[in-house]
């Protein structure tokens, strides 16, 4: 096979990168423009007409700080709960020799194939009957919903990584004086740090970006996540795209920051697990 020329490869990569970066560029541009400029035809592709109008009105007229706080509560709650469950379940799936656990593993995998929209009605009924949908405690409902959605994949990610860690390491720890649980905590879990980072980022993104569950279960007003709140500027009379983009920019910032910090672990966690 002839090697692909470097120039051609660079060209292809530039093309892909452009496609990926254009929406982000457009979001950042639109967030700092008057809505009239955003909506004009033909669009103003190059930077210009800078305006803080959208940002100012967001912080002055909407409970955006409360939305951010709600998002943070939902995301942190979902991440802690899901990572804990996925770690323990993934460990059990990886180490158990019982056939029942194997079956449970496949049941979890099948659950992963269900779309969120299918879960929403049964979840709504359950949360309603549990009284979780009144007021601020609806945040718990969203956390549980996000957890139920993210756990299957997170569990399998953890299982795949645990499979690559020899069980003799825990056995050595058992002999060295640990209980089965502390053996896992002190020897296997530190070794699984890349997988933990990857799963944490995955759940963080799922929960932070969740639109469906927040929109369905949260009462609205102040108690709304920032991802779900963005669309409320798209009304029948006004299409305030600059405000939508301003919210989107604020919403994207934490995820972006998280990626910058944990990128290396994330890649190692995704590609690791098989030795």
């Amino acid at each position: 096979m002839r090697p692909i020329p470097t120039a051609l490869r660079t060209l292809a990569l530039v093309a892909f990168a452009t496609v990926a970066i254009i929406p982000v560029y457009w979001m950042a541009l639109s967030a700092f423009r008057p809505n009239a400029v955003v909506m004009q035809w033909p669009p103003a592709v190059l930077p210009g007409s800078f305006s803080l109008e959208a940002m100012r009105s967001l912080f002055a007229e909407t409970p955006i700080l409360s939305w951010l706080a709600t998002s943070l509560a939902v995301t942190v709650g979902s991440t802690l709960l899901t990572v804990t469950i996925a770690t323990l379940a993934g460990y059990a799936l990886s180490r158990s020799r019982s056939r029942l656990t194997g079956l449970a593993g496949y049941a979890i995998l099948i659950a992963k194939m269900l779309p969120g929209t299918l879960l929403i009605v049964p979840l709504y009924v359950m949360f309603f009957q549990a009284g979780l949908l009144d007021g601020r405690q609806a945040v718990i409902a969203v956390i549980l919903a996000n957890c139920s959605f993210a756990t299957p994949f997170a569990t399998w990610m953890m299982k795949a990584f645990f499979d690559g860690i020899p069980k003799e390491i825990e056995e050595a720890a058992l002999i060295d004086g640990c209980s089965p649980f502390t053996a896992m905590l002190k020897t296997v879990l530190p070794a699984a740090a890349p997988a933990l980072a990857a799963v944490t980022i995955y759940v963080f993104i799922v929960a932070w970006n969740d639109f469906l569950f927040a929109r369905t279960f949260l009462p609205g007003g102040e108690t709304m996540t920032i991802a779900a709140a963005s669309t409320q500027f798209l009304g029948e009379v006004e299409m305030a795209w600059n405000k939508v983009m301003a919210v989107a920019l604020i919403a994207a910032a934490p995820v972006f920051a998280m990626f910058l910090i944990l990128e290396r672990q994330f890649v190692a966690g995704l590609t690791g697990g098989t030795h």
């Binding site: 020899p166 003799e168 390491i169 056995e171 050595a172 720890a173 002999i175 530190p190």
Partner: peptide, 11 residues
């Protein structure tokens, strides 16, 4: 116990 694959704690 000493194991065939050493089983040292990797971290």
């Amino acid at each position: 116990m000493v194991f065939q694959n050493y089983a040292l704690y990797p971290t």
